[in-house]
Simulated scan of single mutants.
Amino acid sequence: MIKLDQFLKLLGIASTGGQAKLMIIDGDVKVNGTVETRRGRKLTEDDQVTVGGQTFKVGDVTHSNN
């Protein structure tokens, strides 16, 4: 499991936790098609995160970075 703000940093979309927080609070991030404003939202492998018009499956990203 990984938190949403940590996931954005892992992707390289946000360089800092503060930047990730602002993106999430501003409504720029969707989880499974729904805008998510909780930066501590825990993601599972099956969740899909959409940001900047790109969608990432959590399991694909976290497994390729291990």
Results as ranks from 00 to 15, higher is better:
Asn32Phe: 09
Arg39Phe: 13
Leu43Tyr: 08
Glu36Asp: 07
Met23Glu: 06
Gly27Cys: 04
Met1Gln: 11
His63Asp: 07
Thr16Phe: 07
Arg38Tyr: 04
Asp28Glu: 11
Gln48Cys: 14
Thr62Leu: 09
Gln6Cys: 12
Gly40Asn: 12
Ile24Cys: 05
Asn66Ser: 10
Leu8Lys: 14
Gln19Glu: 12
Lys3Arg: 15
Asp60Cys: 03
Leu4Asp: 05
Asp60Ser: 11
Thr44Asn: 05
Leu4Trp: 13
Val49Phe: 03
Gly27Asp: 05
Thr44Gly: 10
Ile25Phe: 08
Gly40Cys: 08
Gly27Thr: 05
Val58Ala: 01
Asp46Cys: 14
Ile24Lys: 07
His63Lys: 08
Val49Trp: 02
Asp47Arg: 02
Asp5Val: 12
Gly12Trp: 10
Val51Ile: 15
Gly53Ser: 08
Gly17Lys: 07
Leu11His: 09
Val49Asn: 03
Gln6Ala: 15
Lys42Leu: 14
Ser64Asp: 06
Leu8Gln: 07
Gly53Arg: 03
Gly12Asn: 07
Leu43Pro: 03
Leu22Arg: 13
Val49Arg: 01
Val49His: 02
Leu22Ile: 13
Thr55Glu: 01
Gly18Cys: 10
Asp46Ala: 15
Thr37Phe: 04
Ile25Gly: 00
Arg38Ser: 10
Leu4Tyr: 13
Ile2Asn: 04
Val61Gln: 02
Arg38Asp: 00
Val49Pro: 09
Glu36Trp: 13
Leu4His: 08
Gly27Ser: 05
Ile2Phe: 14
Thr16Asn: 01
